Amino acid sequence: MNRPHQFQLMDTHAGGDVSRIVTGGIDLLPGSSVREQMEYLRDSADGLRELLLFEPYGIPEMSVDLLVPATDPAAAAGYIIMEVMGYPIYSGSNTLCAATAVLEAGIVPKKEGLSRFKLEAPAGLVQIEARVHNDIVESVTCEGLPSYIDTYRATVNVPDLGAVVYTVAYSGGFYALIDARDLGFNLVRDEERALADCAYKIVEAIQAERGFSHYTLGDVGPLPFLHFMGPEEHVGEGYYRSRSATYVHPGVICRSTTGTGTSARLALMHYEGRLQAGDRLETISLRETGFIGTVTGIRQEDQLQVVDNTITGRSYVLAHSDVVINCDDPLVGCDGLHHILSDRDTSLPDNA
């Protein structure tokens, strides 16, 4: 018989995407940076991701973020992102949720007004601005990764769809950007399953035809994501709004528009000359939630127009819980997990 273990969790969501924040129950991971700790978790302890994203504890549409002590003294805490497709080095919605969690957990004091601090993601340091009113985290603005257009208006032949025009942006992962109207979509909730099925076919066709390489990171794997774009509405000076939907895995359309999907849109609109520094795009999801992307700067890198940006949204706390992990339970898979389970309370202390 194995003794049950416990994880301390804070469930949150941003734009409808649930991020399960692990605040305790896991031993300190080896690695001199959060990126190296993420790689250790990916290569040697993937059981944590599988445990919390699948039955009986979770569903593939969720994400898991493990809070860890930062290795960079400039950061208040580190976080490792786990999703059904693996370990992204950055995610906008997960960053919004992680930032809210460190405030709610007291790692960063939750002071009235505007607070600024840094978190350490596998991608590096991320600047955070959080606004607190009446002890409630009302909004969070986080840096998006520098984004750029890799391929503009290419065509791929897709089974059952024919020739599909797509653009590829990098914004933390490679995204195929698709005009939803070209495929007959209005980006409403009733289309969710059809959008997922359509996106799967397009992504599979692009992956079979070609790969993509980041100008500094090199090969980061096959293109995983697709972002459906609705018509853009000009709602004010330098302010636009558009319905959007992001595909991340077979059968999975994100509840939110995603931060990285929004950043990819900023890169495209700037590439086409329709957004400049200071301009904003609000993306609206199938569930009527939204994120606001802001272009904060433009620079030239290796003949690429790189768009610096921020993502603004709100994360809500859903629950605080202790999850019991009983490895004798036939529905619970503990393979690849035993060696990182803690026998003590490892919740991050204040100002970890």
Rank of each mutant, 00 (worst) to 15 (best):
R265W: 01
A45F: 11
Q276A: 15
L187Q: 07
V203Q: 04
D302I: 02
V306C: 05
A74R: 15
I80D: 02
L29D: 09
V295G: 00
L266A: 04
E120N: 05
N157V: 12
L51S: 05
D302E: 14
S342E: 10
M62S: 11
N309E: 01
F117E: 03
P73G: 04
D135N: 15
D197L: 13
E55I: 09
C142V: 15
G336M: 06
D179C: 04
V295M: 06
S242P: 08
Q303K: 09
A245E: 00
G16Y: 05
T155Y: 13
V323D: 00
G333D: 14
E36L: 13
R181F: 10
D65M: 13
R210E: 11
A267F: 07
G297V: 06
I26R: 09
V220Q: 11
Q8K: 15
L52D: 06
T216P: 10
S32A: 14
R35T: 10
L67Q: 02
G78F: 01
Q303H: 14
R193Q: 15
I340L: 07
I21A: 03
V306E: 02
L9P: 05
I202H: 03
M229G: 10
I128F: 00
D179P: 00
E61P: 00
A176P: 08
N186Q: 14
L275D: 03
T260S: 14
G16D: 06
D65P: 00
M1E: 13
G162Y: 07
P122V: 06
D190E: 15
M62T: 12
V307W: 02
Y271I: 00
Y175S: 05
S213M: 11
S321I: 09
A99V: 04
V252L: 13
V102T: 07
I202P: 07
A267V: 06
N309W: 06
L145D: 00
K111V: 08
G293C: 03
P73S: 13
Y87F: 11
N326Q: 09
H234Y: 05
A101W: 01
A98H: 03
V140D: 02
Y215R: 12
P231C: 11
P56V: 09
L52S: 08
L53V: 06
V164E: 04
Y40E: 10
V235E: 06
A176L: 14
P146T: 02
S44R: 15
R131N: 14
V235Q: 11
R42A: 13
I136M: 12
M229A: 10
G173I: 03
G124I: 00
T141M: 13
G333F: 06
H214M: 04
D179I: 13
L268D: 03
L268C: 06
L48Q: 01
F291I: 07
A99W: 01
Y240N: 09
D11G: 08
R243P: 01
L66C: 04
C334D: 08
R255E: 12
R193L: 14
Q300V: 09
N2D: 15
L41C: 06
D350L: 12
A352G: 07
P231E: 13
Y90D: 01
E104L: 09
R287D: 13
A123C: 12
V295E: 03
N326F: 01
Y79V: 02
S285N: 05
A70C: 10
